[in-house]
Computed example of a mutant assay.
Amino acid sequence: MTFVTISKRLETIARYCPKGARVADIGSDHALLASYLLVEDIASFVIAGELNEGPYQAALKQIHTLQIRDRASVRKGDGLAVINPGEVEVVCIAGMGGQLIASILENGKEKLTGVKRLILQPNVGEELVRHWFLENEWQLVSETILEEDGILYEILVAERGDANAPYAQTDRTLEELVRIGPFLWQEKPPQLHTKWQHEREKWTKVRTQLERSDKPEAKERLKQIESEIEWIDGVLACLHMDKQSFKK
Rank of each mutant, 00 (worst) to 15 (best):
Q99F: 10
K247S: 08
V4L: 03
W132T: 02
A58H: 05
D214T: 12
I6H: 01
S245Q: 10
A165N: 12
L105N: 06
I68F: 11
I145N: 09
V91T: 09
L105S: 03
P55H: 05
L177F: 14
R71H: 04
Y56W: 10
P18M: 05
D214C: 01
R179E: 14
L192H: 05
R172C: 05
E176N: 02
N123K: 11
I68V: 12
K202I: 07
L134Q: 08
T204D: 02
F133M: 03
M1Y: 09
T204R: 05
W138A: 01
K215Y: 06
K76A: 09
R9P: 11
S28L: 02
Q99P: 02
W185D: 14
E89L: 04
S28M: 03
L128Q: 15
P55Y: 04
E50L: 00
E106T: 14
E187G: 09
L66N: 07
A24P: 01
A165I: 12
G114S: 10
P216N: 06
H240S: 11
H131T: 13
G125Q: 04
R69P: 11
A14I: 09
D78Q: 06
K219R: 09
R9S: 04
R207A: 11
K195F: 13
V124R: 13
K109D: 10
K61S: 05
E40M: 13
L156P: 11
L174P: 04
R75D: 01
P85T: 03
A24E: 01
S213F: 02
Q191H: 10
V206W: 15
L10H: 00
A24N: 01
L66S: 08
K247M: 08
D171N: 03
A72L: 07
E220V: 15
E147T: 11
Q67I: 13
T194L: 13
E40Y: 14
T173E: 02
E89A: 06
V141I: 15
T204P: 05
N84L: 11
R9V: 11
Q186M: 14
K205N: 03
G79V: 00
I101H: 10
D162H: 10
E226P: 03
T2N: 14
M1T: 15
M96G: 01
P216K: 06
L140S: 08
L192R: 07
D214I: 01
N123T: 14
V88F: 10
L120G: 05
D233E: 09
A34C: 00
T144E: 15
E106C: 05
D242Q: 09
D171C: 00
I225M: 00
I63H: 07
R71E: 01
E220F: 13
D149K: 13
E226I: 02
N107A: 13
P18H: 03
P18Q: 01
K243D: 09
G234T: 00
N136R: 10
I225K: 00
I13C: 02
E106P: 12
G125I: 09
R160A: 03
R71A: 00
E199C: 09
E53P: 13
F246Y: 08
T208Y: 04
T113I: 15
L210I: 10
V88K: 02
I104E: 07
S245R: 11
L60W: 06
G49W: 11
L51I: 13
D29H: 07
G20F: 12
V46F: 00
G181H: 10
K76V: 06
A58K: 07
D233L: 01
K202V: 08
E40S: 13
M96I: 04
W203L: 06
K76Q: 12
